[in-house]
Simulated assay, not measured.
Amino acid sequence: MSNVRVLPVLEPDVATCCPPMTERALTAEEAVRTAAMFKALGDPVRLRLFSLVASHEGGEACVCDISDVGVSQPTVSHHLKKLKEAGLLSSERRGTWVYYRVQPAVLAAMGQMLASRD
């Protein structure tokens, strides 16, 4: 019997983050949540990691597949943790590896928030 433990995937609450910026002004609480997302993506390494996960085949990526971004493994882990804390990534441990995914709702919410009123 295997000792593998699958952790539940918690969906971040980003889908309900904010209305389109052209619809109305953000509330103070919405601005804090939105700033945390942009702050997390404001680092080039984090933005690259987010892009690697989002574009990876199957919609998820093992940390072993995305760790070659020019920084040490502990630094990669630090940046992935920051992306998770901002609600941009979720993760699941499978054996010795951690798999990361961007929830479709996260990308949809970000796109909607930045959409114009055309």
Results as ranks from 00 to 15, higher is better:
Val71Tyr: 02
Val98Phe: 07
Arg5Asn: 12
Glu57Pro: 02
Met21Lys: 09
Pro44Ala: 00
Val4Lys: 02
Thr27Ala: 01
Val106Leu: 06
Ala115Val: 15
Glu92Cys: 11
Leu10Thr: 14
Cys18Leu: 12
Cys18Met: 11
Leu88Ile: 01
Val69Asp: 06
Ala108Asp: 13
Thr75Asp: 01
Gly59Ala: 03
Arg5Tyr: 09
Arg46Gly: 14
Tyr99Ile: 03
Ala86Lys: 09
Val32Thr: 12
Arg33Gly: 04
Leu49Asn: 07
Ala105Tyr: 01
Leu114Ala: 15
Gly87Val: 05
Met110Val: 15
Ala61Gly: 08
Thr96Arg: 15
Gly87Glu: 01
His56Met: 02
Leu7Phe: 13
Ala15Leu: 08
Leu88Ser: 03
Val102Pro: 10
Thr96Trp: 01
Asn3Met: 08
Val71His: 02
Gly42Gln: 12
Pro74Met: 04
Pro104Gln: 00
Ser77His: 14
Leu107His: 14
Arg46Phe: 05
Ser116Ala: 14
Val71Ile: 14
Leu114Ser: 15
Arg24Ile: 00
Ser67His: 13
Lys84Leu: 00
Asp43Tyr: 03
Arg24Ser: 03
Leu7Val: 14
Gly70Leu: 04
Glu30Tyr: 07
Arg117Lys: 11
Tyr100Trp: 06
Met37Pro: 10
Thr27Tyr: 00
Gly111Thr: 11
His79Ser: 01
Ala115Lys: 14
Ala54Asn: 11
Pro8Tyr: 03
Glu57Gly: 07
Leu89Ser: 04
Cys64Pro: 01
Glu57Lys: 14
Val4Thr: 10
Ala35Asp: 07
Ser90Tyr: 06
Leu52Cys: 04
Gly95Asp: 04
Ala36Glu: 12
Val76Asn: 07
His78Leu: 10
Ala86Glu: 05
Gly58Lys: 05
Gly95Ile: 04
Pro8Cys: 03
Arg93Cys: 02
Cys17Asn: 07
Leu83Gly: 02
Arg93Leu: 03
